[in-house]
Design a protein around this nucleic acid. Structure first.
Length: 262
DNA sequence: TGTGATGTTGAATG
DNA sequence: GCATTCAACATCAC
């Protein structure tokens, strides 16, 4: 689930659920997804603190603490947040939760344990060390986009998925962008005409913004979007058949005749 | 029972 | 150091 629009929705949820509530207690059921700290140390760091806000870059969500430190929430493939009141309402695969003074609990659910949680004292230093690119929706400008692609030779899809170049595009939205631009996802970055680059940039912005506006709720996406035909053998709106392949190591769907290979 | 999954990473290669 | 590829990570649903 969690690509940029999904994490944006999680951010809104997190802000509503956690902001300005004193963390009375922290319970850790499984500290596998918490990096650098064991469960007890994590509990010590967070207990008694309050989230004052949040910052999102791509798929990375940083909860701002009142001491100036941050809590990184990366949802991996299956991370989710749930605010609840009674212990028995805890999500099935809860790895930890914050118990607020209000009596509510915010649980972090994660069946597949690909999520990453990290306590960060210096956010700017972390972002720099991590080499995380600008947020594809809110921070990436055309000029920067032009600069980033210089010297690259891989596939367009691989480029869009690389979080060091731009942060936030995942497998589904990468396919969506390629479809809407009528470009084969395995097209080489260095062979794409200038005009197409402009189109990729604009479509990407439009797709992400539209998805964010609809709270990443797929069923509310425009009727002519690709995702609903993203199935092998399906018939795309233009009549071409959807093909399945692998690009940049990821399962990829595209409309054979509709998307041109550069 | 086997397979694949909307993400990241470190190792390996060029 | 950079660009790119790819297997590995842990678990569940189909």
């Amino acid at each position: 689930m969690p690509e940029l629009p999904e994490v944006n929705t999680y951010q809104k949820y997190f802000d509503t659920a956690a902001r300005n509530k004193l963390i009375r207690e922290v319970e850790v059921q499984d500290d596998y997804i918490i990096k650098d700290l064991n469960g007890a140390a994590f509990r010590e760091k967070l207990r008694g603190q309050t989230f004052s806000g949040s910052y999102r870059r791509g798929k990375y969500l940083f909860g701002e603490l009142d001491n100036g430190h941050h809590l990184l929430l990366h949802f991996g493939m299956s991370g989710d947040l749930k605010l609840y009141n009674e212990p028995e309402e805890a999500p099935k695969h809860e790895r930890f939760h914050f118990a607020f003074e209000s009596g509510e609990r915010l649980g972090f659910d994660c069946p597949r344990k690909f999520a990453r949680i990290r306590y960060i004292e210096d956010l700017q230093a972390y972002l720099k060390e991590k080499k995380l690119g600008p947020d594809a929706l809110n921070e990436l400008e055309w000029k920067t986009f032009q600069e980033i692609r210089q010297g690259k030779k891989g596939t367009l899809k691989g480029f869009l998925l690389n979080q060091r170049y731009l942060a936030g595009v995942g497998n589904l939205y990468a396919d969506e962008i390629c479809y809407q631009c009528r470009i084969h996802p395995a097209s080489r970055v260095d062979r794409l005409p200038e005009k197409k680059w402009k189109e990729v940039f604009e479509k990407m912005k439009d797709i992400l913004q539209t998805a964010v506006d609809r709270d990443a709720y797929y069923r509310h996406y425009p009727d002519d979007w690709f995702w609903k035909w993203r199935e092998e053998g399906a018939e795309a709106p233009d009549g071409s058949t959807i093909e399945k392949t692998e690009v940049a190591g990821r399962t990829t769907y595209f409309a054979g005749k509709w998307q041109k290979r550069f």
